[in-house]
Design a protein around this nucleic acid. Structure first.
Lengths: 192, 192
DNA sequence: GGTTGTGAAATAATTCACAGCG
DNA sequence: CGCTGTGAATTATTTCACAACC
């Protein structure tokens, strides 16, 4: 979150920011910013603030975004296609380099510059040292696919499937259930 | 999350569940389930467990999902189109009833049964008592659109824009920055 | 015997206040 | 004098343990 804000500051040509400015743009408070960053070292200069470029580099190093990462996409339906088209990953040094689907109708087609491969081609990943995957398949197929991804060496999964996924402790899963997030909103509709 | 699990239990014909079963499917522990639910009343029966249908109804009431809700979509790009195609909202009683875009090329076209309207038509919402919106526009346009949504009476916003949004306290925003979520994964890649 | 609901204990996160640096 | 970094205080969350109940 802070990295995102810092990149936008850098684009605007700012060289230095205070925790207060960072906080305002990130939607938190200044002491939260300082406490968060302090866990990773003395990243700022008392009396001055934080160096925009320097802190961005520090956070990239902390998040291991200091070198480019390749990711694959599984499931090229509506959401998968939208993700292939999305250019927002590049700013974090992330790139989708392959897409897979089990539908023979889709396999072989090219979507936004990526040729869709059959799921059976997944095993070719081992050699390529790709560790990230984006999962955009129906919940009914998700666990099966995840088991397979783990088998071919994937270490981090961003899942859009509406179900929890079981993985070994070494593998990290982040799940986004879009419908569930929308469903939370009515609870906060205080009036009416 | 619990509601999602309960609906899947109901589909499988189960009538009653223990906190332990609920926990396993939801990916948490049993005492967490009991504590969470206890904040809203005595929803289970000691010695028996929770009634699957009954608890689902209780949670729907708590989340105010006990009646159908209409939502609108702003921004019919790749992600917006995917969202229009997505059928997962229905199970929470949520339905997208209108879509808006500022691109004259898109306005008038029909996508998955929804005709795309111009942004200027948004003001017609007031009368229709729609309180939810899904925001799938670029970050650069997001705040401007949000200000307008607030003006026409929207009370809850699910945003996919990669920026924090300023809204009055009465309005609730949930933000999903897909690229940021993927960018978090490398941090957890312990080895390598 | 099995299961919930809940006080109490343990742990974690947030907020505050200010010493110390530039 | 403004700003960071951080120990201490506060607040919130999670975990535990068990009484009450079917």
């Amino acid at each position: 979150m802070y990295l995102r804000v810092l990149m936008s500051f850098a684009e605007r040509g700012m060289r230095s920011v205070s925790s207060k400015e960072l906080a305002r743009e990130a939607g938190v408070n200044d002491w939260q910013v300082r406490k968060d960053l302090s866990y990773f070292g003395e990243l700022g200069k008392p009396g001055v603030g934080y160096d925009v470029h320097g802190l961005a580099c520090d956070i990239r190093r902390i998040l291991r975004l200091d070198r480019a990462r390749h990711a694959i996409l599984i499931g090229v339906g509506n959401l998968g296609t939208a993700i292939l088209a999305y250019g927002g990953f590049a700013r974090y040094g992330l790139k989708i380099v392959a897409a897979f689907d089990k539908d023979p109708e889709k396999v072989g087609r090219e979507v936004h510059g990526i040729r869709i491969q059959d799921m059976s081609q997944l095993k070719g990943l081992r050699k390529r040292r790709i560790s990230l995957a984006i999962l955009a398949v129906p919940a009914s197929a998700a666990q099966e696919v995840v088991d397979y991804l783990v088998k071919v060496g994937i270490k981090g999964i961003l899942s859009f499937a509406a179900c929890p996924l079981k993985v070994p402790k070494k593998v990290k899963v982040i799940s986004i259930d879009i419908a569930m997030h929308l469903a939370i909103l009515p609870y906060h509709l205080s009036s009416e």
